[in-house]
């Protein structure tokens, strides 16, 4: 594959306050490509969903590290990778079903993956139980 034009790597502890830090940092990085307001808002939302999943489900509010990698190519393709080393997902297809949630408080909508796949052009989720989650998202800017 062609070499990326620019890239960024961030490691953040799994604190919920870092949800905003993660999406803002990615937005600032991608802003170099002069995306539309809508494109930036889509990317922020997708990053927020992935990072929230890592905190709430991957690490279940325990301490862990969230890895975020962003790169873009000369054809304005943005690739975002978000990884955790949390508990992993046993059944990825089930987790990705809209409205599916393991949460019992009634406060989680189960729409995280639906948001990621709607707002990004490509979404791949790799996970095994006990081995964390790796999310790869691609968005082609206009």
């Amino acid at each position: 594959m062609k070499k990326s034009e620019n890239s960024m790597k961030i490691y953040l502890p799994s604190l919920s306050v870092n949800e905003g830090v993660a999406r803002s940092a990615v937005a600032v990085f991608v802003a170099q490509l002069n995306p539309t307001i809508e494109e930036i808002s889509d990317i922020k939302c997708a990053v927020s969903e992935a990072v929230t999943n890592a905190i709430v489900h991957g690490y279940k509010y325990s301490q862990g590290v969230i890895y975020i990698g962003v790169k873009y190519y000369s054809d304005r393709t943005v690739v975002i990778e978000i990884k955790d080393k949390g508990c992993g997902i046993e059944n990825v297809a089930e987790a990705m079903t809209p409205l599916f949630t393991t949460d019992t408080s009634g406060e989680r909508s189960g729409m995280g993956f639906a948001v990621m796949s709607t707002f990004m052009d490509k979404l791949d989720v790799y996970s095994k139980k006990g081995e964390g989650v790796r999310i790869l998202m691609v968005k082609k800017l206009g």
Partner: peptide
Amino acid sequence: EFMDSSGLGLILGRFT
């Protein structure tokens, strides 16, 4: 200015 799916849960909870 920004809301993710956590906002959906928040809204549905207050609606209920």
